[in-house]
Nucleic acid binder design. Sequence first.
DNA 1: AAGGTACGGTACGTACCGTACCTTAAAAGG
DNA 2: CCTTTTAAGGTACGGTACGTACCGTACCTT
Lengths: 212, 212
Amino acid sequence: MDQTQNDLLSPPEQSKGEEDQPKGARRRGDVLENAILQAAWEELEEVGYAQLTMENIAVRAKTNKTAIYRRWPNKVKIVVAAIVKHVPQPDIFAPATGDLRKDVINLLQGISKPMQKIGAETMHALMVEYHGNDLSSQLMRPKTEDKLNIAMKNILKNAQKRGEVRLEQINERVISLPADLLRYEILTTHEPVSDSTILEIVDDIFLPLVRQ
Amino acid sequence: MDQTQNDLLSPPEQSKGEEDQPKGARRRGDVLENAILQAAWEELEEVGYAQLTMENIAVRAKTNKTAIYRRWPNKVKIVVAAIVKHVPQPDIFAPATGDLRKDVINLLQGISKPMQKIGAETMHALMVEYHGNDLSSQLMRPKTEDKLNIAMKNILKNAQKRGEVRLEQINERVISLPADLLRYEILTTHEPVSDSTILEIVDDIFLPLVRQ
DNA sequence: AAGGTACGGTACGTACCGTACCTTAAAAGG
DNA sequence: CCTTTTAAGGTACGGTACGTACCGTACCTT
């Protein structure tokens, strides 16, 4: 009888490396919320946006749809939340290298990786479902307050101090040009954006325009 | 008896302005196919891609889903077919105006209208569902065989003959730049692309680059 | 100890997809 | 003209996923 007790009671407590809760335990608040967002992110990476289901997110998070819908009203919102949580926001104040070319290349490379992580399929899907929602503010802001745009202007201001460019002669559209081209590349290409693409954007297009 | 025959045979033929078939008549082949494509196009314009359903297309075409699935395997395919039928393909061989600037502006304006008709939402949706399909060849080809790219090269060749540019010094990416920017604008903006946007692309970006 | 909160779990109604099946008009072919 | 074949009209179904409703209960607060 004693043997039997030991054999039956011990195993359930352990099982995997991940902190498993005891049999009837419940996670709440942030703990559960993080588990759901983590599950959503993993599902998104594994099966992609189109194949993503609320049910599967719930299963992976070891909870149920209800817990998800208590927090986010639909698929779009939870996916955006998962992305915001797991994808690093680009640095507005990238460290100045003292060279316009290097600064711009760094900026583009910095944003390239995170956007690749999200993937073109998901971005398109979000832009489809965005129609009508107020979702744009998360991913596609008006250009004047776009983070990348601000970062680019800071870079150009520094370049101006060094006499590399004359800011007042540079068109707004030229300022946003590198970021726009990079985003277009990511949206329309299905392979990852190569470093040489970034170099082309900078050396063959952007620099000739700002240095006139 | 003669009267009766006339009275009974005439009425079913008329009823609405649109060519209505008599009670139990059946359309076949191209007639039915065109009716379906027309209905698909109208639904697409009225409710958009996301809200578009096969059932509603069938109802509007006064037929049923079966007739649609006999012709197209899924929603993507019939939408593409409807677009191809109703949206004019852009003119590759735009008449040369004898001026590089005017040629490029004409080209961009020529492609702008048709793409606006399709709409950003539908384009994103198609690019989502494209993943894995052979659908890209309809909308997004490799750049070297892209129709717009060919047209742009023709324009530049003519400009070279007039001594306006030196083609061998112009980067491939610069050649596709105007079309890329226009497409990006259409994909990310929800308002129609204005003429001034096209002028900016041409005057502030493209021409300075090719005229060096 | 009592009460409120929200999690686990199940079941449901809805919507749409894509398919199976049957009937019947119209075309094809002798 | 009659028979055969084709394809349209029409209904119903299986299947998937969304989003909601409800119930019992673990956990937290006081």
